[in-house]
Write a protein that binds this DNA or RNA. Sequence first.
RNA 1: CGGGGUGUAGCGCAGCUUGGUUAGCGCGCAUGCUUUGGGAGCAUGAGGUCGGCGGUUCAAAUCCGCCCACCCCGACCA
Length: 608
Amino acid sequence: MVRQGGPAAGAARGGGEDGRGDGGNGGVVRRSQMKQSSAFIPTLKDSPADAEVASHRLLVRAGFMRRVASGIYELLPLGARVVRNIERIVREEMNAAGAQEVILPIMQPRELWEESGRWSKYGPEMMRLKDRADRDFGLGPTHEEVITDLVRSNVSSWRDLPLNLYQIGDKFRDEMRPRFGLLRGREFIMKDGYSFDRDEEGMRRSYQAMYDAYGRIFTRSGCTWRAVEADTGLIGGDVSHEFMVPAAVGEDDIAYCEGCDYAANVTLATFKRAEPLRGEGKAAEKVHTPEKRTIEEVSSFLGLGPDRFIKCLMFLVEDKPVAVLVPGDREANETKLERVLGTDEFRLFIEDDWKRFPSYLQGFVGPVGLQAAEVIADVALAGAGGMVCGANEEDYHLAGVDEGRDFTAGRFEDITSAREGDVCPRCSGTLRIEAGIEVGQVFQLGLKYSEPMRCYYDDEDGVSRPMVMGTYGIGVTRLMSAIIEQHHDERGMLWPLAVAPALLHILPLNYEREERRSAARELYERCQERGWEVLLDDREESAGVKFADADLIGIPYRAVVGKGYDEDGTIELQVRTTGEKNKMDMDSLMGLLQQAVDTLADERPHVS
RNA sequence: CGGGGUGUAGCGCAGCUUGGUUAGCGCGCAUGCUUUGGGAGCAUGAGGUCGGCGGUUCAAAUCCGCCCACCCCGACCA
């Protein structure tokens, strides 16, 4: 995608700390083309056939991006501008939080990844290639190895810590399934940061600083968001939070409490179990259930609710069969299972496994009298009675089964997913589930990389200790898409001011009319003098075309120079999000815009 | 990597079942005139290896085989 731009590409609205605007710098920086007649903004009337979700569809239709291969996109001028605006917010907040920007390579040598053990662990998602001398390289899906190598060879004293470095650049991950445009691309722009501290406490401070900065970044970007407890996955580490932007198209489900601030990815959200069901104390009896294999089938056949059943799932774990028991109305959660099992080398039985272990009868497995390497049950089943489960005999189930009397499990663990309406583990409030897009994640890594990669420092007492690390990511291009998912209507995008491709869209209708044309130009120039980004629609198109394109592009403010201007010299200021329209003269319009710009500037961190 | 689907002009699609002359439509594009507060009208025009390769046939966008690309549904990632 787009590489780092120089200052010319930067989008400074709201006060020229970064040397923008024409004042003072002799105009050496030429502003990019903002007249629509010559700007590269290829809008489309029809949605591209391959776009499923709003953000993908609109980004293509409005001329912000194009696809070049599956999961790989080009950002056109408007798209590039939004990305640069997001990056600017990220930079401001990262710098204010004490992080320093670096630029790291995307090509990374195999040796570095061997040191951390991830060359073999990362799998096909890391794109691998060889150079002309047949040396192995990977395209960086993330940069822990490179940064750790950099720091270990250049930092050796406690006096240099803490250190927090970040970069904004391209990542490549050969996703098994790229989809939804920039929401899950293979090549994407990410801000990734890494902190190095002397001890745990320092790491927690760095982590908190990043956590807080992330909140500010997403708020300033115009998103509503939620931070949730998260799994640490391939990156590793102990504590982690994901920053989620609620959206229907989100690929993650998050559980949050209505009553308190508990929130977690459902992959690890926990919940209070209800009291287990009780039986009547009668002995278990065999019931004939011909050809009834699934919970639904047996449940409707016997007229018993699925919560009365014990679902017995067979997993192959490190090549050994393991029985996993969950209540019939619940799903086993593979992420939780991975933690419990302590390995990621497991899978639900497939056809071959059933053949290989013929003593397990598919559809009729049950915990009573079962020969398995291990039996793991969800905690909800401890003490449950009067349950129904497979009888380990073709076409038979057992009813009236009591845990403790008829069977037990080797371990009772939290292995099922929370769902809507479950009880909060902290406050006993009600849990809700919502879909979200993961736009950022922060990890407390600890010694995960510093230990194996020998990233040590000499402490005050002369002892050599491993640095305690944290790692922090934001999907910049994904964030752009997430913003659109939260801000669009049937006609187009509705950009929050802080990231919008421009502040103002000037629409002179009947552009060939000299008075309107010169008024529009005057407004355009006055805006440019203040360093604002504006787009002037100087095309000789009909009003309908201009309005439709403007709606699609979604610039927050629109100045229509039309009839009103002929009548009494007024320009109509329209607000894209609200549809609000007000006629005013050019000076008042400039005043209003200045207010909007000032408000935006107030959100920026104050540099000390 | 499994399952399903699609590839025909820049974009969106029809044609394919039942092979048959110059392969169509809408949008967009070019030129001219008339238009211009919500995707204008008329006229003229340009633009296609029908995803690729091979096969069947007198004849293939159409039938067969292989390959490629892309999209959708499932295995935890910014």
